[in-house]
Design a binder for these strands. Structure first.
Lengths: 336, 336
DNA sequence: TTGTAGGCGTTATCAG
DNA sequence: CTGATAACGCCTACAA
């Protein structure tokens, strides 16, 4: 079994190794009889070409990389992450690609991964998420002409290939919904401050306030890490204010749930005392009481589009336009 | 930048390509001066060896595979999956390995992945989860002498390398806990019936009943897929019985939550009317009201041990004993 | 101590 | 239409 290569097949079929290769690559020029003879042996022995050799020869691994800018620990229970991975996997597979996942929070660790995955040409392309403003990675990737797609926004638009869920617009919709419900003391719980997604949604939130003539109050903006605890402590801070908010927009469902639970723990009724809106529309939303109103950002489409575009880039097909927007949609439930 | 290989470095440093290779592999025999000269050029150009070439040459990709026997769709929001991936990633990285993830539910799809990952030698070893009894994959892997570690149980024990969280024991502990609380009508909500984990926990459940002289009632055993909805419909079935159970042991937290919500929807109070215990101790447990009592199966350790053992196997280090058990532990909260 | 050369398993280019 | 032959980039005997 260890010696199963094309030369071995060739020997048994009584042809040259080159012919075996041709048969396997469906070269139309090969004689039908030879093809059958070769295929018979291939079938009999269950021969499959060695991906390592193919990778070297073709200068292509058929592997796409996904690097999360996050501590692996923090990823462990993140539904956004698992949804992303799941959908990238299934899309990639349709094109005969596989997924290589990595993660690191530290800049050093991140650079190491970057080196290890990209410079070594271990993967053919990269899907980036959670970019920070002025993300150093993006500059380097662009400079090197390495295929990559960013899930998120980037400026200047059209500088790189992106699939964006229009966070600014989505946050606006959610905020306007709260305003229409009569709220004017609306808070925003973001993720880590440097992330583009945090800033974009903040921007949408502010724009909505502005359009409705509501003054922006900086003490209503709190940042947390992506965890239930982060949401809880943010909510705790908000409730200690002299004029606590009557509604909260949280950057994702996990944060929103933490906030919700904290509010309840402190005796607030949701949505009567405080309304809460999350992001991502994960199954968590229907798992808590009251069910969480959330902005669905359509992770499947995001992942599918990003993957497909990345593969197009890798294989040299034209990709237009550079920026694609996947619409988001507010899913109304009981929490707001 | 495209032409960055050892011959190029060698040319610029005025040495042979072999010397460059030796320097990069820390061969102690190279002259210090040469080493410096080579390293200078390497640094200056930012050269990193090509993983594809190394893979072919070394017959090793430094990639470990994780294949979930599940529809990618179903994986999307599964906390067990994301926790597993996250911890495998960080362990693998310590040993300079990367993770390639795949998933498929259908047998055909699964076999395709198996071929594609293993036979092509795209990965050096495999971590398996969710094995079924008489899992065909395991026989083939064993037969081929391919390095793999199973997370779960397998019989005969010691036939293959496994890391097991002692599901039988864990289910026993949980069931006994319920019995001690005075319950005797205890139901079990499993996952897909074929999975080893479903059967093992059922076995533990039955053993506990037996030891306490409680008759086993088949109508108290229901199977669902791994989803909140699965748990809900299982609970619905249970509550329609003439003598509905007063306690439920669910195969994982997601199922347990679905069950919990369904019970509440039907006006049952938890834990007063019906107690519920889940598995995995995911963050979900503290996100719902009442907080979910759950059996913590220590996914980080499971993942870490499996990864480490797999890498030991790949690199030819002895691994003993073949079967390792990671203890589980009941985390008591309010739902039971 | 360093250089030369062979080969890892493929694919692709040339002759024949 | 098929068979030698040359890369792909790297590591490692073996030779100098």
């Amino acid at each position: 079994m260890a010696e199963l290569k094309q030369t071995e097949i060739a020997r048994l079929a009584g042809v040259s190794q080159a012919t075996v290769s041709r048969v396997l690559n469906n070269d139309p020029q090969v004689n039908e009889e030879m093809r059958q003879r070769v295929l018979a042996v291939v079938e009999a022995l269950g021969y499959v070409p060695d991906a390592r050799a193919q990778s070297l020869r073709a200068q292509r691994t058929r592997l796409v990389g996904l690097v999360m800018h996050r501590d692996p620990q923090a990823l462990a229970y993140d539904p956004f992450f698992s949804a992303l991975v799941a959908h990238i996997i299934s899309t990639a597979r349709q094109f005969n690609y596989h997924l290589c996942v990595d993660a690191a929070r530290s800049v050093k660790g991140h650079r190491a991964i970057y080196e290890e995955l990209l410079r070594t040409r271990r993967v053919d392309g990269l899907i980036l998420v959670e970019s920070e403003t002025n993300d150093e990675r993006i500059a380097r990737l662009t400079e090197q002409g390495f295929p990559f797609v960013l899930i998120g926004r980037y400026q200047p638009e059209d500088a790189i290939y992106t699939v964006d869920n229009d966070n600014v617009g989505a946050a606006m919709i959610a905020t306007e919904y709260l305003i229409q419900k009569g709220h004017c003391r609306i808070a925003y719980i973001g993720g880590p401050a440097g992330l583009t997604v945090t800033r974009d949604r903040l921007q949408g939130y502010r724009q909505a306030l502005e359009q409705h003539g509501i003054a922006y109050n900086p003490s209503y903006v709190v940042y947390g890490d992506f965890s239930s605890r982060g949401g809880a402590s943010a909510m705790a801070d908000l409730l200690m204010l002299n004029q606590p908010p009557t509604a909260v927009l949280a950057l994702d469902d996990v944060l929103a749930l933490g906030a919700l639970r904290e509010a309840q723990r402190r005796g607030r009724r949701v949505p009567d005392d405080v309304s809460i809106v999350g992001f991502n529309d994960t199954p968590l939303c229907t798992m808590v009481e009251p069910n969480l109103t959330s902005v669905a950002i359509d992770i499947p489409t995001l992942a599918r589009e990003a993957t497909q575009r990345l593969i197009d880039l890798i294989e040299g097909r034209p990709v237009e336009p550079k920026r694609q927007i996947v619409p988001a949609q507010l899913v109304r439930r009981s929490s707001a």
